[in-house]
Amino acid sequence: MTTDTRAIEIGHDNKQGGLAVVEMEHVKKSFGNNHVLRDINLVVHKGESLVILGQSGTGKSVLIKCIVGLVDPDDGKLVILGQDVSELKSKELIELRKKIGFLFQSGALYDSMTVRENLEFPLRRQIRSTPKETIDSLVKEAMRNVGLAESIDMTPSELSGGMRKRLGLARTLILKPEIMLYDEPTTGLDPITSKEISSLILEVQKIYDTSSVIITHDIDCARRTANRIIVLKDGICAAEGSYADLAKSEDAWIRSFFE
């Protein structure tokens, strides 16, 4: 196990160097005496798929919740799509959030609504004057893109784990976000469904031209989806590089993720 607190840069992907959509500089977050994020520095480039790996409790979920504004950092600078989040007013922050999609670990589907209503909800909230025909066509398009066109009138409780993830993804994509954040997208799914979700993440990235940040423990998902991988350890970015480079790392702790 390495105790080095600096990020170990191993190789560079061709996506790096593009326009930065997310920039974090010296971001810190603590809950009481628990220092979850101690000094996070990272950049996500446009069109890139960044995977964040790390053991449980290293602050991966807190990190992406900082990006979407569900958790406020205690310190540091967070710039999203060129806007410094600390300088935004509530309304501006809400506008910014519309450009960020978040797929929750559990799907976070509204149990009291049908699949159709789940998809219509963000549209009706954000664009109140949207005509019904437009909403219908956007809902159908999103359902088609995640392969759930037949399940439109079901309730979330009638869906399988994989279908719930797909629906959660469709609900997020319906607003056509520029950045997609995935919190453990394959957790709790069988290997075949996990593979399907990983492929779907790549398809979505192509269709919607999004930049993605994927939090995962699933090394197969990381291999399939990552342009670049960051490994978190003790609240800092401990290593960074492509899958192939990190898998060959001299650091046994980093290598252990890939074995």
């Binding site: 569900l70 929750f104 589907l109 963000p122 609900r171």
Partner: peptide, 17 residues
Amino acid sequence: ASMNVTEQIDAMQVSGT
């Protein structure tokens, strides 16, 4: 509470509501 546990409240917030 159930919406809180299943992150539905967070999802609502993320969708701009």
